[in-house]
Structure formats: structure tokens, C-alpha cells
């Protein structure tokens, strides 16, 4: 263990090159990214993972800083995004986890993956359903976040209407199948699940060229 960790530190100290312990070819093979794109994303990962603690791992504070330009403050969306990236549930996002999660956001990723990711994002309590209380909590969060106020009456109307459309079996919660049917009817709800930037990461992070191991 110590030897591996030590080698990883050596890898960082001796050169800014891509850590040899990350299997770029496998990551590229298992994702919509080419090897050069994975290398370019490694440049982004390095930047994000050293913004507060320089340990080549993305901590929740670093994710918050990247997305909201502030390292502090609680937010249920941030918690869910972090949890979904952190596949191993060890409190940090590793490079492989970063690539896995970003793969879902690639413009060419299958829509089923985007639908599934969004469902897991909104299933705050991870019960396998999006429940009314969860939707109320998320709406309250966005209203607070954006300093918007809505009357309780209007808020309930919006949530009632949403459930009337999405909850086809009227059991008060949205199943994954209901969610799928609902977003296929309202595809703009998946807008956040696609990052056009991911089609052009080698241009966004051209410094990968100094560290590349292959020529795509």
C-alpha cells in the first residue's frame, strides 16, 4: 500500500505526466472518450483535485468550489452529485470515478444512462422512487438558492401538476419507469445531463499534449 502511494507521489513530483497507474486505454475503451480526451480530462481533474487539498482526489469542498465558486455551504444537489460520482462511497472522487460519471454527460452517451443518472440524482433518499417530499425539498432548495419566492398555493399547484403528469399509477411517487416515460415526453428535463464541452476537451485542455502517451 505504502509503496503504491509512494509511487503515485513520485509520479506527481517527477513530472506532471499522466500517472502511470491510471489505465488510460481501458478508461477510453469503457467510455465515449478517446485516450487523448481521457488525458485532457486528467488535466481538468488535476486542476480540480488540487484546488483545496493537493492529493489528486476531489473532495466535496473542491466539487462545491468548482460548481459554485464557494467552498462552504450545504446543498442537497451537491450532496447527490458528489454521491453519484463517488462510486466507492469513500468520501472522495478518484479519477476513474470522475471519468465514469462524466461519461454519462457526454453528448454521445446513451439516453438511458442519462435518464438513470437523473433518476438517481432526484431520488434523494434512494428508495427507488422519487417521492413527493423529495420534490418539495428540491423545489424549496432551488427557490432558496435563487432568492425566488412562490406562494405555498402556487408551489403545491406546480407539484400537483408534475405528479399528475408523471405519476401514472397515482401512488404518490414516481417509479423509474414513470420517470423514463415522463422525460421522454419532456426531453428538456435532461438538458443538464449533457455537457457539450465534453466533445471538445482536447481543445479546452491542450496542455495534455505535453504529457500524452498516445496520438489518437
Amino acid at each position: 500500500f505504502f509503496s503504491t502511494v509512494g509511487q503515485c507521489f513520485d509520479c506527481r513530483q517527477n513530472s506532471p505526466r499522466t500517472c502511470q497507474y491510471v489505465d488510460l486505454a481501458r478508461l477510453a475503451h469503457d467510455s465515449p472518450f478517446s485516450v487523448n480526451e481521457v488525458e485532457a480530462l486528467y488535466e481538468l481533474f488535476k486542476k480540480l483535485s488540487c484546488s483545496i487539498i493537493d492529493d489528486m482526489l476531489i473532495h466535496k469542498e473542491e466539487l462545491r468550489l468548482a460548481l459554485f465558486q464557494a467552498p462552504y455551504g450545504e446543498n442537497i444537489f451537491l450532496d447527490r452529485v458528489f454521491d453519484l460520482f463517488d462510486e466507492k462511497k469513500n468520501g472522495v472522487i478518484e479519477f476513474e470515478e470522475f471519468i465514469h460519471a462524466l461519461s454519462v454527460f457526454h453528448p454521445n452517451a446513451p439516453i438511458e444512462e442519462k435518464i438513470d443518472f437523473a433518476f438517481r440524482l432526484y431520488d434523494l433518499r434512494q428508495t427507488g422512487f422519487i417521492e413527493r417530499e423529495e420534490v418539495q425539498q428540491m423545489v424549496a432548495t432551488i427557490l432558496m438558492e435563487s432568492d425566488m419566492t412562490l406562494s405555498d398555493e402556487l408551489l403545491n399547484l406546480i407539484i400537483d401538476k408534475t405528479f399528475a403528469d408523471a405519476d401514472s399509477d397515482k401512488d404518490g411517487k414516481i417509479s423509474k419507469a414513470e420517470w423514463k416515460a415522463y422525460v421522454l415526453k419532456h426531453p428538456s428535463l435532461l438538458k443538464n445531463m449533457t455537457l457539450p464541452y465534453l466533445k471538445d476537451v482536447t481543445t479546452a485542455f491542450p496542455s495534455f499534449i505535453f504529457n500524452t502517451e498516445v496520438e489518437d
Binding site: L44, L67, V139, I142, E145, S146, K161, T162, N192
Partner: peptide, 29 residues
């Protein structure tokens, strides 16, 4: 019918406005 209409307001459209759900922040620093 069947496609998004700008007149439809639903809870998930509101929720999707959260800046924490917009991962383009990664690329805009």
C-alpha cells in the same frame, strides 16, 4: 403535442435550474 412546450412549468424544470446541477462549471473556471 409530445414535445416540450414553453408554457409547461413543472417542478423538475425548476429543480434543473440549480447551479449545482450544471456541471459546465467544471469547464468555466
Amino acid at each position: 403535442k409530445g414535445s416540450d412546450s414553453p408554457t409547461i412549468i413543472n417542478a423538475f424544470q425548476l429543480i434543473g435550474m440549480s447551479s449545482f446541477l450544471d456541471l459546465s462549471g467544471f469547464f468555466e473556471q
